[in-house]
Write a protein that binds this DNA or RNA. Structure first.
Lengths: 209, 209
DNA sequence: TTGATATATGAACAGCTGTTCTTTTAAATA
DNA sequence: TATTTAAAAGAACAGCTGTTCATATATCAA
């Protein structure tokens, strides 16, 4: 997105918004044009066709925070942060739910995931496999360092991500109907606290009181 | 579904399958007719129009196990089962992912959730609110009975459901591409064990070894 | 068997779809 | 300013959409 006020960028934004609201198939070139304030034929000066707009959306999805949770940092430097790392990831999920661009991308993805094989392959490799695997390595290192109790690191990674994803879904869903998301929003932090409390190494000291 | 071999039921099945695969909007009456083996015009002898088929799908969704997790049983009788109850619920989610009718319903729901307000309202009230609320009452009773440690029951209910939903999503997604679901399938049980182990009242006995 | 009812066909429809084309207008370059 | 280039409009297109209708063929009750 070079020029945010250029016509091409306006078309992209309008299209993404409509794709996320009504679905790719149900969105028409006439609607996109109308939202931008031009004729549908003028769109073709900026995009080869409708699918080319879709391609750009998927491309932007790939480079978004929705997918790249770890900003290219390696497990070895990440794990030392301990609970703070989990807090950071949790907060990213929360921000994605509330940022107007990323939540639209999320809504778009959820809607097209089951009818677009290319998107599914992309989601599986870039989001699910990559992030879950990376986080499980982080947990493994935490176990070695005796920060958390020893269990299946892959299970921990799934158990940590799953609620974040679920809460994200609920918030984006509630926002779609302009309903209050206050209750759901608190779950991100609560989850991280709950989760860390359950996996951290407990004090062997029994003389609490 | 009275007569499984009646034309109306064939139309319904074909439509549901196509809705789940391609989305409601992208599915044409001609495709549905083709899959059943009749002309598109003959469909109108059984359904008023395309939307009437959609209505029936949503109606069936409402009475499916996808939504009714507790089979009308009350928290007071449910909570006594302790971990066995959680195992039961967990297993239901797993079965839904593998049953050919319910997984199609799930796939359909995920796809239409974000462009169908009626479906969203239904999901919110019938699935999210009802089941989460019910399970949180169950957890509250478990706390009173000192079966599990005292915390926010609503958080526990969310934390228990979220991974089940997430794993269900992953399995239905993997099945859509005929990929192996073996690894994901084991997560249902692991989640329940992990979860229960973290919430149950620990033995105060410290002389383990 | 006869008549009535239910279900199938095939053609047709009006409207919408993505896309292309020619023409006009605006912006950039020289 | 004159000329080239980019972007807009407007009309038109072929194809597909859901739906209707008249007609034919089964199914069932009398």
């Amino acid at each position: 997105m070079k020029k945010p006020n250029g016509t091409k960028e306006k078309i992209y934004s309008a299209a993404l918004q409509l794709f996320a609201q009504k679905g790719y198939k149900a969105t028409t070139m006439r609607e996109i044009g109308k939202q931008v304030g031009i004729q549908q034929s003028a769109i073709y000066n900026h995009f080869k066709n409708k699918e080319a707009i879709l391609d750009e959306v998927i491309e932007n999805l790939a480079s978004s925070h929705l997918i790249n949770l770890f900003e290219n940092k390696e497990p070895k430097e990440l794990y030392k942060k301990g609970k703070a790392l989990l807090k950071h990831i949790s907060n990213m999920f929360k921000l994605i739910s509330y940022n107007t661009e990323t939540d639209t991308l999320f809504r778009f993805m959820m809607q097209e995931l089951f009818n677009n094989e290319r998107l599914r392959v992309f989601y599986n490799e870039e989001f699910y496999q990559k992030n879950v695997k990376k986080l499980s390595i982080v947990f493994f290192l935490m176990m070695q360092d005796e920060m958390i109790e020893a269990t299946d690191p892959l299970l921990l990674a799934n158990e940590f991500f799953a609620p974040l994803f679920f809460y994200q879904l609920q918030i984006v869903r509630l926002k779609a109907d302009n309903k209050s998301t206050a209750a759901a929003a608190t779950l991100f932090e609560k989850h991280t606290d709950f989760f860390w409390d359950k996996i951290k190494i407990k004090e062997k000291n029994n003389s609490l009181f």
